[in-house]
């Protein structure tokens, strides 16, 4: 026993503080959330098991005329367009700045990255100013062009599209930086060999660059998918009312159930639905995008 502590005591001491907060504030909550998702939980009397045990999950999908299903659809639509656009824009921008001089590359990377350091909340708020029906910049442009004005974030038919557009127009800074790094590490001999074979710029890009940065693409697709499935701040601040249910997303539903209605069981159930969806999507993406190229 003494020898065990002499040998390993330090190691356990080193991980003790981190492990303690991790277990108390992450591990136990995850396990407990799973339990609560099968319970009716109240702050006063604690948890009671539901009958049937999956009742919260049933409620999650059926309450208020299936609003959670609408929320999932909205989230999927938002994520699909945002992730696709982010990846394409990131790939194109990093490819275009790659041949530039070092200082120009640094400039563009910084210009694209700058907004990303401010919180999603402030960015969303700024977009809500741009979308303001009366004095917003978007309608100013329409007025300049002589087009009819649009109620960008108060018209239920287009609010989700406006929010999605704001996410697409936020330059995918991480993608630009990571793609740049990946492109920088491709050996130049590959390009020289292709030039000898008479390949032009676009052929080289499509046949060498794009396949060789596939693992970065995979990482970014997973990263952006998770982030956009968890979208909240942007919606919370731009469309506080949800205009009908047109901009409800999975996390706004978790928030509403868990912390507005204090319906902990249903909120926890929806959080686990989110978890399972993210896990499934990530697994699919790994399968289809897994890189088999090594260099």
């Amino acid at each position: 026993m003494r020898r065990f502590f002499q040998k390993h005591g330090w190691s356990y001491l080193f991980i003790l503080p981190s492990m303690t907060t991790f277990i108390v504030f992450v591990f136990i909550p995850v396990v407990w959330a799973f339990i609560i998702s099968f319970q009716k939980y109240s702050l006063r009397s604690g948890g009671r098991w539901m009958d049937p045990f999956y009742a919260n999950y049933e409620t999650a999908f059926t309450q208020f005329g299936g609003i959670f299903i609408t929320a999932i659809q909205n989230t999927v639509v938002y994520s699909f367009f945002t992730v696709t656009a982010n990846i394409f824009l990131g790939l194109i921008l990093s490819s275009l700045i790659q041949p530039l001089s070092h200082s120009l590359r640094t400039f563009f990377r910084a210009a694209y990255y700058l907004p990303a350091v401010t919180s999603a909340l402030i960015i969303g708020m700024t977009w809500s100013f741009i979308y303001n029906a009366q004095w917003g910049f978007a309608n100013y442009l329409l007025r300049l062009l002589g087009l009819p004005l649009v109620r960008w974030i108060s018209d239920p038919d287009i609010a989700l599209a406006s929010v999605t557009a704001s996410a697409i127009l936020t330059i995918p800074a991480t993608a630009v930086v990571l793609y740049s790094a990946a492109m920088g590490s491709i050996p130049t001999e590959y390009y020289e060999a292709a030039e000898l074979d008479g390949a032009n710029g676009i052929q080289k890009w499509w046949h060498i660059t794009v396949p060789l940065i596939k693992s970065t693409t995979l990482y970014l697709v997973v990263l952006y998918s998770i982030a956009s499935f968890e979208v909240f701040e942007r919606i919370y601040i731009m469309v506080p009312s949800g205009v009908g249910n047109s901009t409800q997303t999975i996390v706004t539903q978790i928030y509403n159930n868990g912390f507005k209605d204090l319906n902990f069981g249903v909120g926890a159930a929806q959080a686990f639905v989110l978890f399972v969806m993210i896990a499934i999507i990530a697994a699919f993406q790994f399968r289809f995008l897994q890189s088999d190229v090594e260099y």
Binding site: Y41, E230, A268
Partner: peptide
């Protein structure tokens, strides 16, 4: 736990 959405923890965290 790295892949678990942080939102999963919020309800028990609130109780704790």
């Amino acid at each position: 736990t790295l892949m678990i959405p942080i939102h999963v923890t919020f309800i028990p965290l609130y109780i704790i």
